[in-house]
Amino acid sequence: MERVPILKLGDVLIVSIQIDLQDQGVLALQEDLADAVVESGARGVIIDISAVEIVDSFIGRMLATIASISRVLDAETIVVGMRPAVAITLVELGLSLGGVRTALNLEKGVALLEDRDNARAVAVPR
């Protein structure tokens, strides 16, 4: 079974899904990520789905579950690069991915995490 590699950049884990995953592959990724968050003590997880052609309810659920798990482990999950056609289809399907933060691309996803970290460190009231 093909496994999706998990990259570590500072205290952020980055996953880029590049292949059409089987359901077991999706579940394996979910477990691998939870393990990796605990092991590395990462503060953020970025899942890049810019190469993913469809997101069905199974993958949708995986994304929501990863977000919930990492929140419990004090890490924030950001899903980046969802294609317009995929987003339209997900809305039609009835999946809103509540609780999952999103960004247009990897760069903006990283910026979103940095913003949050800065806010934590400085905590300047506005």
Binding site: V80, M82, R83, V91, T102, A103
Partner: peptide, 12 residues
């Protein structure tokens, strides 16, 4: 409404 929801999923 669906467009707004889809844009949110994309991060906008």
């Amino acid at each position: 409404l669906k467009t707004v929801a889809a844009a949110r999923l994309m991060g906008a």
